[in-house]
Amino acid sequence: MSHDHDHPSYLQHHFDTPEQQFTSSKLGMWLFLATEVLMFGGLFCAYSVYRGNHPEIFMYAHQFLDTKLGAINTVVLLCSSLTMAWAVRAAQLGQKRLLPFMLILTLAGAFGFMGIKYIEYSSKFDHGLLWARAYEPHEEGHHGDDHGDGHEAGAADHGAAHDGGDDHGDADHNGAADHNGASDHNGDAAHEAAAGDHGGEQAEALPDGVLEILPSGLKVEKSTIAPPGSAPSGTVLTVSDDGHGEHHGPEPEKTKVFFSIYFLMTGLHGIHVLGGIVVIFWLLFKSLGGAFGPEYYTPVDLVGLYWHLVDLIWIFLFPLLYLIH
């Protein structure tokens, strides 16, 4: 404004020059990428802690992930990274036909990735290989026979199957099993019941878990810690070292946490892919209108950076989840 020389339409009033605006946007984007790295860093931390302390569950459970699909997805994502980088190049060189073409290829990669992810997820759902509370694997051969019975008895009273002495080893037989089974199928109904109708069956009408209410209004609550005696942990299992070649083997304790981590990491990553799809579509529409050229291609560049970061995270997720030896 204070300068009289040409002020292009894409230059915002508080910047003096296009270069200043461009480098500012770039800096902002890198800061944003840093926040993404730290956010995923939390999940990598959870991963490391569980893998560091319970390597056997990772050895065991990664067998249920399909390495081939994971590898294909890696290739798909790497290729879409190339087309994205190429799109930036096309924008910089003012290749107005090539830019949308490259964006479409990138989108194809993104959709391909999500499609394969969908196949993987649905097979996990089919086999009940889900996050901890919903975890109830039921494939022939890798779970005790008695578990299979429980499954046939129907999903509705799965809690009973838990009591049948399965080899989960998750120490939730006593009391906790009710909690676990109920929440599997009825969502939070158990919780809500406890909150809503205070002690339907309890004579003194005390809220669940409350022993008594003192005259001062203070509640004396029951301990929610179950001592060792009352909650026998499942059969102690050891995993054979050669978990890889031979399929399955006995299931270690806490295996369900692996699937929690798997769904969290790939899920958050998948959400980022979906976000990428949205912004690349936006770029596509803008580029068809000829919005980008050598002087102004900042959005293409920034979306590119984002897309490469999504790729980058997958580069780590693939070996960490699928390729455990």
Partner: peptide, 30 residues
């Protein structure tokens, strides 16, 4: 991120062996 992971890992690795097997927070109501 590295700092976070290293210190958290160091800590959990230290206290894991001290946990009493079988103790469990029942989560719901005993």
């Amino acid at each position: 991120v590295g700092l976070f992971i290293i210190l958290a890992l160091l800590d959990t690795g230290q206290y894991q062996p001290t946990m009493i097997p079988g103790y469990t927070a029942a989560g719901g109501v005993v």
